[in-house]
Amino acid sequence: MVLAAKVYVAFPAASEVREAITAELGGISKLVYSSETPNPPEDTEAMLVAYSSGSGGGDSRPTGVFLSEWTHRLPKLRVIQTVSAGVDGLPFDSIPAGVVVLSNAGAYAEPMAEHVFAMILYFYKELQSNHQLLKRGVFNQKTPTEELAGKVLGILGYGGIGRAVAKRAKCFAMTVYALNRSGNADAYVDKLFGPSALKEFLSGVDILLLTLPLTKHTAGMINREALGVMKDDALLVNVGRADVIVEEDLFNHLLSHPRFRAALDVWWEEPKGDSTFRPNYPFLELPNVLGSPHNSGVVKNFFPRAVRSAARNLAAFLEGKNYRNVVSREDYV
């Protein structure tokens, strides 16, 4: 008889979240929840973690601190599965080399793709400016807006989010460029670029979408030089990680190129909890900037679905089936 693996769920789990976890892992593992057991048992083989402050263990330690304290104390630990797509905040130098880390990349792709197009259409259809004109009594039907048909959407980091956006782009009759390291694409991509062709890729796009994870390879990739080869009226949309862009370089570029636009869902300094958001540069005072509070993947009733996606992938690992999203720790350490 094969004993069920012990899985430690290291974040508060409401009833619907527990149902999602049990649906995927209940039949093959023994589930231990941090709300009842603040510290993981010594024979824990797998961890399911949420990637946010106050989600590690029963005493609400940040996940990174919790993992740093506990992973080396668990001799049977084989795998850590995150509920988040991003893993750049995990303490890879503290996680034993033999422990596999799995992300939840792609789980948030559908709502994020909708958010991307909301941001694109905000600018292309001049929604805010025409709304303000109407409030002042100006009924402007003469100034045309832009259409998406025929525009080139460039996706930097073609994974689950990029695929979901590209699929929708085809509904608008857009041309899709993609750049990634793997060299893999699909039928939605009209032209695929490798990392060495970054400048050529950037110079040809009307809309640049960043969905990249933050790694030692991607940090600061979009700098003054990269922005300088883009079209003067291009639109940059970032739903990946803020530090892929050099903050000061983007701000200065927006000032010096008023036709250039930026839609930012992720920020270089994001507040914790209910503290006040204070950006390092006054991006939100610029007319060519649209911001959102890192909520592109946050839609009603979505967290249980994201947890179930992570639990399903963890179950595949534990059962020796095809699992996905293995994190290459060399990209982070």
Rank of each mutant, 00 (worst) to 15 (best):
L74E: 14
P96L: 08
P304A: 12
L133F: 02
L31R: 14
L212W: 12
A85E: 10
E319I: 08
K6V: 15
I245R: 09
N184W: 01
H257A: 05
F251M: 01
I95F: 04
A13L: 00
D190S: 06
L192V: 15
S182Q: 14
Y124S: 00
F123M: 01
M112R: 10
E330I: 02
G64H: 14
S60H: 08
S309W: 05
T82K: 09
V152I: 15
T211A: 10
L250W: 10
A14G: 06
A185S: 15
A185P: 03
L102D: 13
A13D: 10
A4P: 03
E36F: 10
E16P: 01
G320S: 12
G162L: 14
E126G: 07
A105Y: 14
A85H: 14
S256E: 14
S203P: 13
V83K: 09
A178Q: 11
V49D: 01
F193E: 12
P287C: 08
A185E: 03
K142C: 00
S309E: 09
G320E: 03
E247N: 04
R324L: 00
R324D: 00
A50R: 13
T37K: 12
P293R: 03
H131I: 01
R305F: 05
V189Y: 00
L318P: 07
A113V: 13
K216W: 02
V189K: 02
E147S: 06
L134H: 10
N140M: 05
R261S: 03
P144A: 03
D59K: 04
V246L: 11
L77S: 12
W267R: 04
L3C: 10
N322G: 05
M112A: 09
V100P: 05
F277A: 03
T211L: 01
T22G: 12
A262D: 06
F317C: 07
S29I: 13
H72A: 10
